[in-house]
Nucleic acid binder design. Structure first.
Lengths: 266, 266
DNA sequence: CGACACCTTGAAGAGGTTCAAGAAATGTGG
DNA sequence: CCACATTTCTTGAACCTCTTCAAGGTGTCG
């Protein structure tokens, strides 16, 4: 077993079934192996790539001030909270959402290990959305001031933070496309493909997954009501494209699922 | 007339009616006057605020490599094009949109003078969306490498670029909310309020505006068909909230318009 | 094991889309 | 500068997708 794989296990222990959501099926072909320990972690990509000298690399170890545990259901930050740090997800699963005065909520994303939370706070010094852990989680706390200071010394870091921000913008463009011009079935299909692809990058199955969010949260993200999400799951299952047992999803016909997203003429 | 107002005229000449879209009505109370010439320009905010020494400020004049004219209907950049520069809009009006293989388009935003284009290109070194001028425009070309270099010397600049990126993320959260959980009328109302507020910040009327985009482009942005946009305009006009003469819109009852966005219970 | 949260499914209804036709602006070329 | 072609906009009617309301089922957790 490579160091990379060990690291992966460290990030997301694969133990008992109860704990092991998004578990890699026993008989699955090992997914594309990691090149380095943190290759599936933005922070990792932020630290490791290419042009870092040893001294720079060791300097980066100081970037993470502390770790912070977030229990399932608890908030990592809430709107209005002063922005002090970015958070790299070490383990666990989050949702972010915004709320309006009149009580409407819109889930803006689901984040998993290796992704960065808190980017919204840079804009005006306080957070504008909530980040809620959907399973017990641990994050690396990176004080923004420190990050900024390090960026000045390590140009690659500065550039990388900008890339992470830009990537989020591009991701949201995709969400806008989905919300603006796809039908329910296409939205759910592209959602599942997105989640499963990101899990696959982390070494999990590309066909099986356990959702960490409710139908209502999926619906909020997709701009649909929970009943519509449920019905659409059922329809895809009936057509043999998925098996759905509550939150346990198995993609039986991935190309059919992709075809739904792409071929959806009109 | 203050220098600020002069500068505003320089940016957007107010001459004949044919040329003067978003014209400030003759009898309108002058809108919140500019504090400084570029206060309504991200680039300006990037350059001018607080902690810049004279030498730093003069250094920033070198940031803009060239100006570039973009004719109405022409592209500033297209998907796949190598990312080299950010663009500050000096005058004119743009739309950005992404397209899928199957020909669907989604307008991701409308940009006006003082706003920054090209942020999507940072993510992976090439642009992922198109930027099209909706009226003859001029942009300041800021080579990214140079920007990056300057950022290292001028910490405030580095921070400001991050803020611009983060602000775009937050803006898109708002779009997601709109697309995900608002009805047609609410979407159009929030769209108009957004546009008119941004125009007002630039010294134009807070009640009159001339749209630079078609119903179809508005519809694409709002996740609606052009017919629905047209009908919704008509309904709002019938209720006395707007006057609509093609692209010339007059907001007759701004608080009613705001109430549509906020009070939309459910 | 029982309470609670979550999910599924049905039926009726609303909001938005589609298709179609005509009217109003805009731009073009003579 | 005017007439014509083109684009853009409006409006109607039928249709369809998704929502709403409601009831019952399933899984989870204390």
């Amino acid at each position: 077993m490579t160091y990379a794989a060990t690291a992966a296990l460290r990030i997301r222990p694969v133990m008992g079934v109860q704990q092991t959501f998004y578990q890699r099926p026993v008989n699955a072909v090992p997914a594309t192996p990691f090149k380095i320990a943190c290759s599936n972690c933005h922070l990792g990509v932020m630290c490791t790539p290419v042009q870092l000298s040893d001294s720079e690399a060791s300097r980066l170890d100081e970037l993470v001030a502390t770790r912070r545990r977030v229990r399932r259901g608890a908030a990592l930050f809430v709107p209005g909270e002063t922005f002090t740090s970015l958070f790299a997800i070490r383990s666990g699963f989050f949702k972010t959402y915004i709320a309006t005065e009149d009580g409407r909520e819109q889930v803006t994303g689901f984040q998993m290990a290796g992704e960065i939370l808190g980017l919204d706070g840079i804009a005006c010094g306080s957070h504008s959305c909530s980040a809620i852990a959907l399973e017990d989680a641990e994050v690396c706390v990176m004080p923004y001031e420190r990050l900024d200071e390090f960026s000045r010394e390590i140009p690659a870091l500065q550039k990388h933070l900008q890339k992470i921000l830009s990537r989020e913008i591009v991701r949201e463009h995709g969400v806008m496309m989905m919300l603006g011009s796809m039908r329910a079935e296409e939205r759910l299909a592209s959602f599942l493909l997105d989640i499963v692809q990101r899990l696959h990058m982390r070494g999990f199955s590309s066909s099986e997954l356990v959702l960490r969010m409710t139908r209502e949260e999926i619906g909020s993200y997709l701009g649909l009501k929970l009943e519509t999400v449920s019905r659409t799951f059922s329809q895809l299952a009936e057509r043999g494209i998925l098996s759905v047992r509550h939150r346990h999803i198995c993609i039986r016909d991935a190309s059919a699922l992709r075809a739904i997203v792409v071929n959806a003429a009109h």
